[in-house]
Amino acid sequence: MKQDAFSKLHPAVNLLFFIGAIAFGVLLQHPVYLLAGIFASGAYYLFLNGRKGLKNILLMIPLFIFVTLFNPIVNTRGVTVLFSYLDRPYTLEALIYGVAVAATFVLMLLWFGCCGRVLTGDKFTCLFGNLAPSLSLLLVMVFRMIPNLLQKAKQIIGVRSSIGKGTAEKSSLKDKLNSGMTVMGILTSWALEGSITTSDSMRSRGYGTAKRTSFMIYRMTATDWILSAVMLVLISVVIFFAASGSMNVQFLPERDITPIKGFNAIGFIAYFGYLLIPTILNIREVIQWKFSESKI
């Protein structure tokens, strides 16, 4: 799989970025910050997923509308009543708050979507391999066994159908279920027998006799250190401004949104800059590539 510029960094840097992005995304309810978050996460999501990403983002729109409209139903506070139903008011403030809640929800979907593409299984085991060696090994073995077992299942189904025990499209549900259970049973026996061979092999190679070392494909380079420092500085700036109240916002019962101007803008710039890090890295890579291409 092709990796983008941000994914090539050390997994710890990736993890730090996503923890910051998701935590701020959840905590900051200021409409301008939410908009910035959706823009940055959407841009990176599109970059990672291409055409399929666009389809997924379009699928999020009905979800956004649903969450927005749902909020006033459970939330009746607010001063401007739009209409009443069953003696319950449907208020404008709750609807606006619903937009913020829906935006947070979409923001989370987008960041987690990016996170899933960037922090792959090998990066997780790389990060937590020293902290939890047994669990990481377990996870690696699971990842390796899934394709292996699926292949074995295909073989079993093939053999069964070649001796006339397979199921066809028109078989009854009972036959399909029974046949499926038999395949599952054979697969389990086979995999368990195989697991004994694997563990004997592990034991004879000295598993558990000494501390395990692990192969580290990722190293902290100068770029990684610099980016981590930049991210930490930006996070501190955002936290400082958030604590000083420049991102305060209240929807219910009355709207009270702190405007972003003057000194407060620094906090916003820090936040937006932080979120754009992956996108900037990727744009830089594209420009570099085009530049070196043009020199040929």
């Binding site: 939890a132 060696p133 047994s134 669990l135 090994l137 377990l138 073995m141 699971v142 066994m145 899934i146 292996n148 077992l149 699926l150 299942a153 599952m184 697969l187 389990t188 995999a191 368990l192 195989g194 697991s195 004994i196 694997t198 563990s199 004997d200 592990m202 034991r203 598993y207 558990g208």
Partner: peptide
């Protein structure tokens, strides 16, 4: 998770557990 790590599970236990988890994941996927 700490209790699991502290127990220092042996190779056999780990592999059998991995098989069960892989079967469960296949059952989900």
């Amino acid at each position: 998770f700490m209790a699991f790590e502290k127990r220092r599970p042996q190779a056999r236990e780990l592999v059998v557990l991995a098989v069960m988890i892989a079967l469960a994941v296949i059952g989900r996927v």
